[in-house]
Design a protein around this nucleic acid. Sequence first.
DNA 1: CGTTCAAATTTGATCGTTCAAATCCGCCGA
DNA 2: TCGGCGGATTTGAACGATCAAATTTGAACG
Lengths: 342, 342
Amino acid sequence: MSTSRAEVAAPTVHDVAGRAGVSHQTVSNVLNAPERVRPATRERVQRAIDELGYRPHRSARNLKARSTRTLGYLVQPIAAGAINAVLDRFLHALSDAARIQGYHILLFTRAEGQDDVAAYRELIASSAVDGFIVSETNYQDERVRFLLRREVPFAVFGRTELDEPHPWVDVDNAAGTRQAVAHLSSNGHKRIAFLGWPEGSITGDERHRGYREGLLAAGLTPHPEYEVRRPDGESEGWAACETLQALTEPPTAVVCCSDLLAAGVLRNAAARGLRVGEQCAVIGFDDTPVAAYMTPTLTSVRQPLEAVAETVIAQLIARIENPLQASGQRLLTPDLVLRTSA
Amino acid sequence: MSTSRAEVAAPTVHDVAGRAGVSHQTVSNVLNAPERVRPATRERVQRAIDELGYRPHRSARNLKARSTRTLGYLVQPIAAGAINAVLDRFLHALSDAARIQGYHILLFTRAEGQDDVAAYRELIASSAVDGFIVSETNYQDERVRFLLRREVPFAVFGRTELDEPHPWVDVDNAAGTRQAVAHLSSNGHKRIAFLGWPEGSITGDERHRGYREGLLAAGLTPHPEYEVRRPDGESEGWAACETLQALTEPPTAVVCCSDLLAAGVLRNAAARGLRVGEQCAVIGFDDTPVAAYMTPTLTSVRQPLEAVAETVIAQLIARIENPLQASGQRLLTPDLVLRTSA
DNA sequence: CGTTCAAATTTGATCGTTCAAATCCGCCGA
DNA sequence: TCGGCGGATTTGAACGATCAAATTTGAACG
């Protein structure tokens, strides 16, 4: 019976073997251990493979080899109005780095009313992936603890403060704000404020630490009233700016924990008639695509996401292929992208 | 020999069968055709499943069932400085819609020096996915032609102008610009310009058509000199604004093909001391996160990406499960998000 | 009470690959 | 000439699920 769909059955290892006049196992060897096959045979098999356009059936290989060459990545829901403008860049870099090593990225989300861990558990139980890339972690990250306990390979973009070592890559957030302060100070600024998130997020706390260190390195004394800690958000940036401007000696420059906070500061400054970039300076963090189109264009700290992705993939694959592999830990330095706001 | 890794072998259908005192096939039936199993037995098996935390081994199931319940999505490289700020929203919506139907999204990229089609071909040959979600298509899209020829299930976000029918979902781009023009006209604007991409992109051409239709609907006559077609980019927006302002009767409002072009217009207007939102109006397209943080905040057309993702997934899965399924075609209407620029 | 038939359950084969073990082949040296 | 040996190749089983066919169970009925 021929259906209307052409649906040519994909060639198998047996088809190739038949055409090349060898056994199925020899074909398998050509693919997985070519040194075991005599060059003449190898060539003959390779020709048959090319002619038939044969590719090993992924599921069959996965089943027997007990590995899927697939890495899981949990996509977090995006809060309305929030920006995760680095995700597209990160995901492309991630899949590309994975591809080069013969792996793929599998996206998954958590079901409503389910917690993140349950989503990981599901994929592990069904042997759907060989490991996970985890991002957006925090101090005692539950997912990381879970993966450690289950001894499932994973690598983290970000950090935790768990005792047990595990592979991670992070951007040196402190170095980012340190650079920002150094830049401002070299431009003559003495009254430099910090606008960051409330204590409790690793990333935010690191950026705060870098700010402090930057001041000291520049020979400036930290003033507590110059440190405003508020949640992320454009209107939070506006409000923080109000607070700072109400001081008897307002700062002349602000280092912000995100481009979003910086946007609020810029808008407030504009409303006050302050010329940012001349009278005062603002620096953001993340170099989101927004930064280049603000008025004035925003100087911002840019994360080397491509390098992060490459490193985190390399770590994870090393772990998968040799579970006893020591866990690497890498800090990558971000760059300050200079525009007109500072 | 016990290794240092705990690595408890995952339970199989036989383990469950043993514990429940039934055969392996009954366990399979409980999972895939529960109506064939007597309620009492079903319950007993279910209990064993729960106690063991059993989940079917994905690769084994895929091999025998000849389906992977996985959908491929090609991640395009992001040009430096370009924005694909809708991708994160779209990908989350996509994986979430897929999850609800028991599917996953597999990301892949094209190798350097390889064309897109080759990347699709690779996944098809290795039976790695059941179908594809294709986006960012154009008139005679090569990928779509290839997938049609190979009779591989796929669904498109966007459109092509190929003769052969295929499932697609698109945002009614013309309706978006039509709404924009209607809004401007109801605010008293008579000289409304269009700033869009050069002819040759379906999306851009549709947005242009909607602009024309909007003018006619409002009883306004189109003026060729009010239509500027330029590539995407912030500086292109700036340049286009220069052109328009050089006219003897410059327009009082501009409908833009993207938020990026609109950003350039806003910046140019600010430089000229024009008060956008009062003296003149600007509308963008896509409601990228950028829009809310421009000065003034940008009125923009927002695409219903969640609905698009849901629909495109539903179409694709329908196709996979029944290849003879007629190909659905859906146009979804975007919304105008009002802010201060218009 | 035996027969019949549908529903419930089991048995055995199979998907396409890789692993492990067996066999084959050619060459060398005694 | 033949045994031995090592590399090349083949054979057969297995991974863990589902499909198809065979078998058992149980209820209904003459």
